[in-house]
Simulated assay, not measured.
Amino acid sequence: MGPADFGDVPTWIGGAGALAAGWFAYQTIRSQRQQIGEQQVFIVEQTRFMDEQRQNLELERNELRAQAEERRISQARLIQMSFHTSGSSGGDGAGGLIGYIAWQVEVENTSDDPIHDVTVRFGDAYTAATATEREGFHHPDGGRRSVPVALIPAGHTVLFESPEWPEATVDNNRPALMFTDDGGRRWRRDSYGKLEEAPADWAS
C-alpha cells in the first residue's frame, strides 16, 4: 500500500480559498443578521418612544383644553341667581278675586370682574319689568336700572321683577338669567341652575 494522495498544491490552495470564502460569507450573513436584529430592536424602541411621546402630547393637549375650558366658564359659574314669587293670593276666579303674582329675581355678581347686558326672561315671551340695584338707598335714583342692565360690577346685586300674572299661570313663566361675561361670551342660566353658553345674538 502506497502513501495517501492528498492532492497537489493548487487543489489545496483552491480548497482553502473556497473555505475562506465560505467562512467570509457566513460571517457577513451573521453580521447582517445581527445588524438587522439590532435595527429591529431600535425600531421597536423608537416606536415605543414615539407612542409614549404621542400619549404625553395628548395628555398635555387635554390638560390645556381643560384649563382653557375652566378659564372660559370660571366667571359665569360665579354669577348667582336666586328667586321667589311675591304678590297677593286670591280666589279661583269663579267667585272671588284672582291673585296676581310676580317673580323677584336677585342676580349677584360674586366674580372679580363685571358682567354686561344682563336681563332676566320669564317663559318664552317676557322680560323683566324693572331692575333695581340692591342697597339702592346709596344711589340718588334709588338704584333703579333700565332693562337690560348694561353692567353689574363685581360684588354687586341687582333685583329684577317680572310683570304680574294670575297666580295660576305664573309657574309657566319661570325665570332665566342672561348675561355677557367680561370676555364677551353670552351665557344663560335657567331656573334649575343649568348654565350654558348662548349665541352672541341671543335675544336679550
Results as ranks from 00 to 15, higher is better:
2 G>T: 02
2 G>M: 07
4 A>W: 13
4 A>H: 11
6 F>E: 09
7 G>E: 04
8 D>I: 09
15 G>Q: 15
19 L>E: 09
19 L>K: 09
21 A>S: 15
23 W>S: 12
23 W>L: 14
32 Q>S: 11
34 Q>P: 01
34 Q>T: 05
36 I>F: 06
37 G>Y: 08
37 G>V: 02
42 F>S: 11
49 F>M: 12
50 M>W: 06
52 E>D: 13
61 R>A: 05
62 N>D: 02
64 L>E: 12
65 R>P: 00
66 A>W: 11
67 Q>Y: 07
68 A>P: 08
69 E>Q: 10
69 E>Y: 13
71 R>K: 09
73 I>Y: 08
74 S>K: 11
77 R>V: 06
77 R>D: 06
79 I>W: 03
85 T>K: 07
90 G>N: 07
97 L>Q: 14
97 L>T: 14
100 Y>S: 08
101 I>S: 04
101 I>P: 06
102 A>S: 14
105 V>W: 07
106 E>Q: 11
111 S>M: 04
113 D>I: 02
119 T>L: 01
121 R>K: 11
122 F>E: 01
126 Y>G: 01
136 G>A: 05
138 H>T: 10
138 H>E: 12
138 H>C: 05
143 G>N: 09
144 R>D: 10
146 S>Y: 07
149 V>F: 11
158 V>L: 06
165 W>N: 08
169 T>C: 00
169 T>Q: 12
171 D>W: 00
172 N>L: 13
174 R>E: 06
176 A>H: 07
176 A>R: 10
180 T>F: 02
180 T>H: 06
184 G>R: 05
185 R>P: 08
186 R>H: 05
187 W>L: 03
189 R>H: 04
189 R>P: 07
189 R>C: 07
190 D>V: 02
193 G>M: 09
194 K>A: 12
195 L>F: 03
198 A>Q: 03
200 A>T: 13
200 A>Q: 14
201 D>I: 00
202 W>A: 15
204 S>P: 13
